[in-house]
Amino acid sequence: MTKLKTLMAIMMLCLTACAGTEQTRLYDKLGGEAGVDKIVNNLVQNIGRDEQIFHYFAEANVKRFREHLAWHLCDISDGPCTYSGDSMQQIHDGMAITERDFNHLVDLLIDAMYQADVPHPVQNQLLARLAPLRKDIIYR
């Protein structure tokens, strides 16, 4: 029992310590504007090749999607942008995106980040910022 408590304490210490060392913006860790563009381009390509979820995007304006996603990622990673496009709810209303398909898109995003040489810890930090948005996107 005491061993477990010690372990928990060490983990909590590490949590606070690691959080305290964060200095550079997530946006910079992603490679700034060029890095975000690379991720977005990779994702667009991955979606284009994907049989499972491409149909959601078949009617979409690719150029606009690209720009707005980059804009949104810039804002959410503390970059020099303020996203003022449609809300996640507005965009996804009526699309009836399932949990399975949403989670599949996350897999494609992870692939896109690997293809853009984003390090694993930075990938997770971006995913952590995006995860709370899921409730505004699925089953609408």
């Binding site: 590490c14 694993h120 810890p121 930075v122 995913l127 952590a128």
Partner: peptide, 11 residues
């Protein structure tokens, strides 16, 4: 599961 919680690793 806490995404990126411990030095960027999922915990």
């Amino acid at each position: 599961l806490h995404l990126g919680a411990v030095a960027g690793l999922n915990w």
